[in-house]
Design a protein around this nucleic acid. Structure first.
Length: 575
RNA sequence: GGCAGCGUAGCUCAGUGGUAGAGCAGGGGAAUCAUAAUCCCUUGGUCGGGGGUUCAAAUCCCUCCGCUGCUACCA
């Protein structure tokens, strides 16, 4: 059986992530990892904090801490927030790990050895007041085109024109506001991406039918527009140092660009995982050479990350001249907006993971976000929509089904699975329908089509309600106890099925639903996919077995709560 | 400016050449096991505008409009 390697785009270290980042990379990857684990695959699911770069240095400075300490703290905060959402990776690493340093330097040496790195001198803005070089967007000034006074050095937000910092009128540091800045020469390493165009095109085109429209078109766009060589070093302190044996030490004191070392951390995290679990060199079998031939590799990310995963990282791997694994499937997402505006980490607009979990348990969010994942276009989160989906799908359709059948069983059949009667035409028709829907649900999951998968899951719950209405045990109980028993037995089997089908999406609630019927088998860490005929799956419960009616599974969201939350987080009018 | 994605029912979205669809919301009914939860029936759309190709266009082509993003040193 294939081994499955899954990575989620690395969340930047700078603060707790919002719901958009959650759905577009970490949660969608977790749901897929759980699905594959449930089907019995050997899965390695990895993520890490992406820690290097200027924004981290500035955030640490603002917090009055040294960068390492700041990252140590933020890493733990993010890790804790993610665990509360039941993001079950096998390892949550750090791009600042020794393992990643070693691998990043290894790849750079290979690229240097193979002649794909070039030393070039560039003009960079240096701020005397801040004592540091400034990335283009950290230089602000007046736009030469439209006169906007807060234009950034890379682009004017007002007229959207692309700028160079030296074009700005009255340029100053966005960090300190000081205008004591100058242009200095700086030496950097450039990765000769342009030499990889034919190889990249062949690789990208070979996935044309496999990747979604948005992923393929973004990847293709970069090739179409003419791939430029890219600077892979920066004039900052916090990062992986360029080793002295590259370019005769000309890059002394410089570090690699965060987008060079961050994807390598996918491999780095694998090594961290192996080191932490005493697995020695086995990490390499996931990534390198013949040993990794049975691995299928999936990456999950927002659309902004796509170029770095379809061009930058593949060039690093190709240029190494070593047989490292390239990604097989890339799942890219559009943006999730907050009402009609953007979620914003810097302006703290929208709902963030730590506050979301204070409001409601993880599974409410997990279901809503996956059912409304921004797969084909940008989509919006609103508390009104969230409430209607939670109330209808989770409370009314699923929760109430579990509730009504278990309570009826407790009231009329002593809380035991009734054994009387035989399945008839009604049950056979339901089994046939479930067979079909289950196959469809599985197929959507395999294709990573979340909206469609969850619509199918909902249809499966609805089919359960339809069956119960037709079978009407509450009517038959008065005249034909065996007939009522058949309906209750089927109803309980449906509850059991629902628990198995919901697990990748709602692990905690799935377990709770399962335990209403019977304890989860094994260590209880995985609820397996019901890869068996529905006739067996829906006639699986042992007659006489005791069940119980769980408390209300999903509480409804009230209008008062919506009002409270929109007041707290800002709703439609804060856009 | 260039490029990319998107524009379908009040809302959220399916639908890539063959009679416009689903869920929610709205309207009517059934049932009374259940968190007033469920089930059945139903109203509702010049498919962003205009032009073209075709026996046939939401779908292919051209053009215009609108929204979003990218434009290589934010990540």
């Amino acid at each position: 059986m294939e081994r499955i390697l899954i990575t989620s785009a690395l969340p930047y270290i700078n603060g707790i992530k919002h719901l958009g980042t959650l759905v577009g990379s970490m949660l969608s990857a977790d749901v897929f990892a759980r699905f594959k684990k449930a089907r019995g695959h050997e899965v390695l699911f990895l993520c890490a904090t992406d820690e290097h770069g200027t924004p981290t240095e500035l955030a640490a400075m603002e917090a009055g801490k040294d960068v390492r300490t700041f990252c140590d703290e933020q890493h733990l905060l993010q890790k804790a927030a993610c665990e509360k959402f039941d993001l079950g990776w096998d390892h949550f690493g750090r791009s600042s790990s020794p393992q990643n340093k070693e691998l990043t330097q290894h790849f750079a040496r290979q690229l240097w050895k193979n002649g794909f790195l070039e030393v070039r001198t560039t003009k960079q803005v240096y701020s005397n007041a801040d004592g540091r070089f400034l990335p283009d967007r950290y230089v602000i000034g007046t736009c030469p085109h439209c006169g906007y006074e807060k234009a950034r050095g890379d682009q004017c937000e007002n007229c959207t024109r692309v700028l160079d910092p030296i074009d700005l009128i009255k340029p100053r540091s966005a960090v300190s506001g000081s205008d004591d800045i100058e242009i200095r020469d700086s030496t950097h390493l450039f990765l000769k991406q342009s030499e990889f165009v034919p190889q990249l095109r062949q690789w990208i085109d070979s996935h044309k039918n496999e990747w979604s429209n948005i992923v393929y078109s973004i990847a293709n766009k970069w090739l179409e527009e003419g791939l430029q060589d890219r600077g892979i070093t920066r004039d900052v302190d916090w990062g992986v140092p360029v080793p002295d044996d590259i370019a005769d030490g000309k890059l002394k004191g410089k570090v690699f660009y965060v987008w060079f070392d961050a994807p390598i951390e996918y491999i780095g995290a694998t090594k961290e995982w192996a080191d932490a679990n005493g697995k020695g060199n086995s990490w390499k079998s996931w990534w390198y050479g013949e040993e990794s031939k049975d691995v299928r590799y999936y990456e999950f990310m927002g659309k902004d990350n796509v170029p770095f995963h379809t061009v930058g990282f593949p060039v690093t791997i190709m240029g190494s001249g070593e047989p490292w694994k390239l990604v097989d499937q890339i799942k890219g997402f559009n943006w999730l907006n907050y009402y009609s505006g953007k979620f914003s980490t810097s302006e703290h607009r929208g709902v963030f993971m730590d506050s979301a979990i204070e409001i409601l348990p993880a599974d409410y969010w997990r279901y809503y976000l996956m059912a409304n994942a921004p797969e084909s276009s940008d989509s919006s989160f609103t508390f009104e929509h969230f409430a209607s989906v939670v109330n209808k799908d989770l409370a009314d359709v699923l929760g109430n089904f579990v509730n009504r059948i278990t309570k009826f069983c407790v009231a009329r059949f002593d809380g035991k699975v009734p054994g009387e009667g035989e399945y008839g035409d009604e049950e056979k028709a339901l089994i046939a329908e479930m067979e079909k829907r289950f196959a469809q649900y599985t197929a959507y999951f395999e294709a990573i089509e979340y909206r469609k998968a969850l619509a199918e899951l909902r249809a499966i719950w609805v089919a359960g309600n339809e069956y119960l209405t037709r079978a009407a045990p509450w009517t038959h109980i008065k005249t034909d106890r065996a007939k009522a028993a058949v309906a209750v037995r089927m109803g309980l089997n449906l509850v059991h099925l629902f628990a198995h089908l919901a697990w990748p999406i709602m692990p905690t609630m799935a377990k709770k639903i399962h335990e209403a019927i019977q304890p989860v088998a094994g260590d209880g860490k995985i609820i397996p996919w019901p890869d068996m005929p529905m006739a067996k799956e829906l006639d699986d419960l042992e007659p006489g077995m005791a069940i119980h009616a769980p408390d209300v599974l999903f509480a409804k969201i009230t209008d008062e709560q919506i009002a409270e939350w929109t007041a707290r987080f800002g709703g439609a009018d804060s856009a």
